[in-house]
Nucleic acid binder design. Structure first.
Lengths: 342, 342
DNA sequence: CTGAAAGCGCTTACAG
DNA sequence: CTGAAAGCGCTTACAG
């Protein structure tokens, strides 16, 4: 069943069927009904490839691409989820891709991104996570459609170039996160991060921790930075080993909520009381933290406001009613049992 | 930049460029290198819409669709993740869709599925979760490409029809799950499910629980079925209220791992000891359970074997070297602190 | 081994 | 308001 079959059966031309499909107004109600009836009867739906092939330069496209680096970051999956509904309701198709198989080389990765956008005739692109700090300015100019980088580390000096961004204030919020522990009187604080060589927003968070330590004159805590590798098992093993070796530590700062269960368990297995003998504070704001024992304080990313911003901005960019811009959201501390927050 | 531009610059015809792009063997090495050089220089990549438009009936397509019902089921996200890498490495593009905005009416949902497969010129489709038990046999015949339903409730009577499936033995495994608690001597057991009207595989699990209760002469536990609605908050509130009202209950059976933190916290907030005063057993096998306090016993879905099976079967179906089939995997109990498993 | 040409499903200026 | 026709980017039988 293609558009010519439908046209033949409905006794019209393919062009007329196309206009019905695309809600053109210059179609008589009688013809519209006749065509719709045939479409309904044969369960016809036009192919995406036909629709996406540009027949004239004015052709509008309806595909939004969404790429996630680090799908195990639940925050990003939740943003994807909320965003996909909103764009769908606005008549767009959202193509989701997870980053598993992209290149590790940043430049190659960016080229793959450009390829992806061209391949799928995207009219807009949302990229979640990652790092494109080292990408030369000219390459951003090659982006073939409006693009919003979300929680991506970008070359700030290029802000005037051809892209938008929606970010949280990772650096400042992690300073505040660490600052909370310092204000609580802790002198020996361990920091659980993904990896020393992580240059995504987790790298920014690490930088924030270091700044906070410097400012408070607690530089020796640099030796208490522990790598968790984004996995439950490494997080558990490494933080446990470190806390065992350094019984003077009285607080742990997690750079992502996903690490929290491992930290609680490690403290417990060392026969200490999480949240009492060792305070815990985290980052992201996943709902799970409200059910841990103890419930865990965390800096929360305002997901739903971020999606609002992504949606409005991308639609505006595609309609050319808005220009590229860079939005930063504040993370807010949800105070819970694991850490006194006065 | 399109295929004609590349052809012009390389001094060949578009057909020749196309053959280079598609690794045809009847191209001289010199021409291949010349064309590849131009492609590289201009960073050209062919559009998906052009490629997917069938020019002749023999046209091979390279799109695999993957739909997830219930993205908050981490098992399904993990399956998606592993599968996307494997299909990518085999040269396929995987289009992921999450089910947020599909219809709730099963028949409409199935029609949307057909539409999706046609729209995107899919050569294969993987569907994770959901329920299509009430879909008439004829509709399955309309599937335009090889399709594998994974953890989907299907009309067993139609097994000879036009689709494949990869399932876990949800019904039997949940009987065994409940059976473990019964063998441990529990007489009053609460069951935390998603919802009474859930007819996905969670419905099968509920059926398994009921069977186990009947077989053991413990029918009165039917009054201890609690709905958690897939959310942390409802799971917590409802199981806590129920356990408070029924202090005789000594074990809780969870139909999904995602419910476990809520259950542990609820027991704790009732001043009882999880895993001791009240045993816990769960279903799915998420890694998180190894770090809960107590660690939680769970029936594990063999995700990686399931992906192997999905991959081999779908490729076989697309190459027409295999016929539709229905594979069932056993879930295995990982025994941990929350429940003695002798 | 390469070119010339027809073809895919769809869209959109243009004519009447 | 509808039709006839040209167009998109790509692929693939077919000719030589």
């Amino acid at each position: 069943m293609n558009i010519r079959d439908i046209a033949r059966i409905a006794n019209v031309t393919p062009g007329t069927v196309s206009k019905v499909l695309n809600n053109y107004s210059d179609i008589s109600e009688a013809t519209r009904q006749k065509v719709l009836a045939v479409i309904e009867e044969y369960q016809y739906s036009p192919t995406a490839s036909g629709r996406n092939t540009p027949s004239y330069s004015t052709n509008k496209k309806l595909n939004i691409g969404l790429i996630i680096e680090g799908v195990y970051n639940n925050t990003h999956v939740e943003i994807e989820d909320i965003a996909s509904i909103r764009f769908h309701n606005a008549g767009y198709t959202m193509l989701s891709f997870h980053d598993n198989y992209y290149s590790q080389d940043k430049k190659e990765k960016f080229e793959e991104l450009l390829e992806y956008a061209n391949e799928h005739s995207l009219s807009g692109l949302v990229y979640l996570g990652g790092n494109f700090e080292s990408i030369p300015k000219e390459m951003f100019q090659k982006l073939p459609c409006p693009t919003i980088f979300v929680n991506t580390v970008l070359p700030i000096a290029y802000y005037e170039t051809n892209y938008s961004s929606v970010q949280c204030n990772h650096l400042e919020a992690s300073e505040m996160q660490m600052g909370q522990l310092i204000r609580n009187g802790h002198k020996d604080i361990s920091i659980l991060i993904s990896s020393m060589v992580d240059n995504s927003v987790y790298g920014l968070r690490l930088k924030g921790y270091k700044c906070a330590l410097m400012n408070a004159g607690l530089e020796h805590n640099i030796n208490h930075i522990v790598e968790g590798d984004y996995t439950y098992s490494k997080s558990y093993q490494n933080i446990k080993a470190h806390l065992e070796k350094h019984p003077e530590i009285t607080a742990v700062c997690c750079s992502a909520d996903i690490m929290v269960p491992s930290v609680i368990r490690a403290i417990y297995d060392l026969s200490k009381i999480p949240g009492k003998d060792i305070e815990i504070i985290s980052f992201d704001g996943l709902e799970m933290l409200e059910y841990c024992i103890p419930t865990v304080s965390s800096f929360k990313q305002p997901k739903s406001e971020m999606v609002d911003s992504i949606y409005d901005l991308l639609l505006g960019l595609m309609n050319k009613t808005r220009n590229n811009q860079h939005v930063t959201f504040q993370c807010n501390l949800a105070s819970r049992e694991s850490c006194k927050c006065l």
